[in-house]
Amino acid sequence: MPRMIYDYTKSILERVSFAPDLFVKELKKAVRNLLPHEMDHLRNWLSYYTKEKPELQEYLFIVERN
């Protein structure tokens, strides 16, 4: 089940990546809902995913501090 939540979170973040304000909102939800090891996976994925999206890179601090 936890893997499903992680995958769902990734899909939501991909879908809302066109709007930074929605992206931040969903990223904050992810921080509240994911387990610590899932957060590690999410940090790695976000690092890769945002390489092509510099407008989203400034919001990675949300997952870095947790």
Rank of each mutant, 00 (worst) to 15 (best):
M1S: 12
M1K: 03
P2Q: 02
R3W: 10
R3F: 13
M4L: 10
M4S: 09
M4V: 07
M4N: 06
M4P: 08
I5V: 14
Y6F: 15
D7I: 02
D7S: 08
Y8C: 13
Y8H: 10
Y8K: 06
Y8P: 10
T9G: 04
T9E: 02
T9Q: 02
T9L: 01
K10A: 14
K10N: 13
K10Q: 10
S11D: 13
S11F: 03
S11P: 07
L13T: 03
L13Y: 00
L13S: 04
E14V: 10
E14G: 04
E14L: 07
R15H: 09
V16E: 13
V16I: 12
V16C: 14
S17Y: 00
S17A: 13
F18P: 14
F18E: 15
F18K: 05
A19D: 15
A19F: 03
A19C: 08
A19S: 14
P20H: 00
P20Q: 00
P20V: 01
D21Y: 09
D21F: 07
D21C: 14
L22A: 08
L22G: 07
F23P: 11
F23M: 03
F23R: 00
V24C: 14
V24K: 01
V24T: 12
V24R: 00
E26A: 09
E26T: 05
E26K: 04
L27P: 13
K28E: 14
K28N: 12
K28I: 10
K29V: 11
A30K: 00
A30R: 00
A30F: 03
V31T: 12
V31H: 02
V31I: 09
R32A: 09
R32Q: 13
R32H: 09
R32W: 07
R32G: 06
R32N: 13
N33F: 04
N33W: 02
N33A: 04
L34R: 00
L34Q: 01
L34S: 04
L35G: 05
P36E: 04
P36T: 00
P36W: 00
E38V: 06
M39A: 07
M39Y: 03
M39V: 13
D40E: 15
H41F: 08
H41Y: 13
H41L: 14
L42A: 09
L42C: 11
L42R: 00
R43Y: 11
R43A: 15
N44L: 08
W45C: 15
W45F: 14
W45H: 11
W45E: 15
L46T: 08
L46W: 02
L46Y: 02
L46M: 12
S47G: 15
S47W: 02
S47F: 09
Y49V: 11
K51W: 07
K51F: 11
K51I: 10
P54M: 01
P54W: 00
P54D: 04
P54L: 00
E55G: 10
E55A: 09
L56V: 05
L56F: 02
L56T: 03
Q57T: 11
Q57Y: 05
E58R: 05
E58S: 14
Y59M: 09
Y59S: 09
L60V: 12
L60Q: 12
L60K: 04
F61H: 15
F61N: 13
F61T: 09
I62Y: 03
I62P: 14
I62G: 03
V63D: 13
V63K: 01
V63C: 12
E64N: 08
R65Y: 12
R65E: 15
R65P: 11
N66Y: 12
N66E: 09
